[in-house]
Design a protein around this nucleic acid. Structure first.
Lengths: 209, 209, 209, 209
DNA sequence: TATTAACCGAGACGGTACGTCGAGTCTTACG
DNA sequence: CGTAAGACTCGACGTACCGTCTCGGTTAATA
């Protein structure tokens, strides 16, 4: 759908090589500048302040270059999200389901409510409410991957024999994370560690019957 | 904040009288036409297809008339939502917490995923992700009221002595409704009765320890 | 074809009245500013320097206002030409064909090669070479009128009995004015009084057999 | 000024040899393809439809190759004109001034109003109205040569003693050809043989006093 | 025989202007 | 006083070409 590249520069902290009129491909320099400009504009001026013209100006890039590689501003933000989200949202392995979940759920809460990438994520979920086609793209490009990461603690617990293999993980994920997203997206209520730990506690107590 | 009027229809099911230059107040006819046009445009052309100009044209109303009474297209949709949501989302009283909750949670799910007013609601939640000021307005004008309705089953159960008065109702509401909103807003997964009943069941089982 | 108005402000040297958000019609103020800006840009930066954006900026007018009333930059220049050309190109009446012609032909030469309006005229003739549809419009809106003016000396001479009523005026006009246009448009040769007087002289000598 | 090559075709009617990477010189194949593509685009889509990108695409040539040899689209059209015009516009020698002129003037008329190369010529004259620098180039590269051809009948008549050596040929040319160009460029009036013959007749009658 | 200079197609790049859409403001005539 | 009408300024949209820049590939004169 979108030709946006996901690959990163082999060594991300190295400066992107100067673009030199290239037959084989796009300017990594321009790509990074665009993603960063989009991110900056979102946090400084809000979603309405993110415009293709604004990004182009801030990134020192021609509009046409943006349209060559991205189909819309949300497509750009999606790339920015994919580049940043994975590491912030990959659950660690503490060898224990409660600890893994407690850690991950509170990490998701912090991501959604406090991080820059989380702001991008919320903006895209917002856009998904306005545009069904984008909603599908969001799910295909981000959510599917994220759900894979979210379920890792469960998969490890199953492997350990801590919970039965028959566990309906997707459904349980909805119950655990739903309230977090609900607060982040709808009520705006702050999400503290106590709340997330209660969620985990209720879930584990239910498992234990 | 907004000058939108909510009331005034002398006899709501009667056709509004043709407005003929009124010295003493706004045209109820124009108000209804605007709200309906906004609703129609949203369902037919999506959120981006809702424009002030489009609404004015569809409603046979001057742009200035819209700007006189509403501050933005989301303000209009808010009025439309408030007009429609209350009755769809007021929980009935079956004399039993499980039944009340089961009914209400599934009703919320249906509202969000299948009704026209629910589409308006999702669009506004989407907009809230893009605009913090609007998020506050959404919470003040719709969400507070809705949360009052949502908690009615709990209040009645407390009055009946079915659950302790110390119940942290807001928090429990988040746990019950969060997964529903999460599916509706984020994953797009369909929400069937089985899923909502599981939510209620898990909640009640936890209460019973 | 174009909705551009030709009417002038009733008293042209009076400042156009301040535009005051008008139900019945366009802003005369904006109209004049656009025509003048187009003229200025043409003489200062050449035809390629005349852009809709440039005119809008110079006239302090929105692009949309230009597109509302004119279809292209040549349409604007046409209006500017029509507003200026008539007086510069209306032949005077000296009671004698030779004098009338001598005066008029040299006036046409001066117009084409030295006046600002003549520069507009040459630019439009240039555009007519590039765009057959515009060529037709040019002929309908300017040339027909101009040919009426050009033939006035002949009509008066016929009325006076100085030349026969059977004179093929259009054809004679081509012979008299053609060389002037040819020099102005093609060779760029300067056109002095001697050249135009020779043209008139040759024409009159031919008449006299 | 322009690097456009005029020569080099070893045998012009032979198909140009396939270019296969050449150290010493440009690809005749590319050159011809560009000129033809420019011609085609002009006749099919008008002057505005002639773009460097369009020519490159139509000719199967890289933009850079065009920019290497020509400075602008008008520079290309100039080459195309020079390649085609000479033969169409060289007056024949019938041994008689009237016949030579009659033939040549009507040939010029046909060229301007009916031939493809004439369309190119008119387009360039049009461009000359928009761009004084180009006007000079047009005169230096095409018009000077063409004027040499135009005067041939006069030179031959002088050599024959048919007209005096003191004849002001350039001025007479303006009088003879001016009306033809005027009709072709300005009025759009068709130019038939009767009109051109009248021009010649009037000229010759004047000579004869 | 291998090198290498000159030209080629390709296509990404930073720009400018295009023509369109909608936002939000303003003024008027009417009821 | 509220309304329909509609012209206004402004900002962004997405597109088309501009002219510049490398790139890798192809050939033929030279080394």
């Amino acid at each position: 759908m979108t030709r946006a590249g996901q690959d990163k520069a082999p060594a991300p902290e190295m400066a992107a090589p100067r673009h030199r009129g290239n037959r084989w491909g796009r300017s990594e320099q321009a790509r990074q500048a665009v993603l960063e400009a989009a991110d900056d504009l979102l946090s400084e001026r809000g979603f309405a302040g993110v415009t293709i013209e604004g990004i182009a100006a801030a990134a020192g890039v021609a509009k046409q270059t943006i349209y060559r590689w991205w189909s819309s501003k949300t497509d750009i933000l999606m790339d920015a999200l994919l580049q940043d989200a994975a590491e912030e949202l990959t659950p660690g392995d503490h060898g224990d389901l409660r600890e893994d979940l407690s850690d991950h759920v509170s990490r998701v809460a912090a991501f959604l409510t406090r991080s820059d990438a989380g702001a991008v994520c919320r903006a895209l979920i917002g856009q998904a409410q306005h545009d069904p086609a984008f909603a599908m793209e969001f799910r295909a490009r981000f959510l599917t991957e994220q759900r894979e990461r979210d379920r890792l603690p469960f998969d490890r617990a199953i492997a350990r024999g801590q919970i039965p293999a028959s566990t309906d993980v997707p459904s349980d994920l909805d119950e655990l994370l739903g309230p977090v997203y609900y607060r982040a997206l709808v009520t705006g209520e702050p999400i503290d560690r106590q709340f997330t730990d209660h969620l985990v506690d209720h879930y584990l107590r239910r498992l234990a019957r």
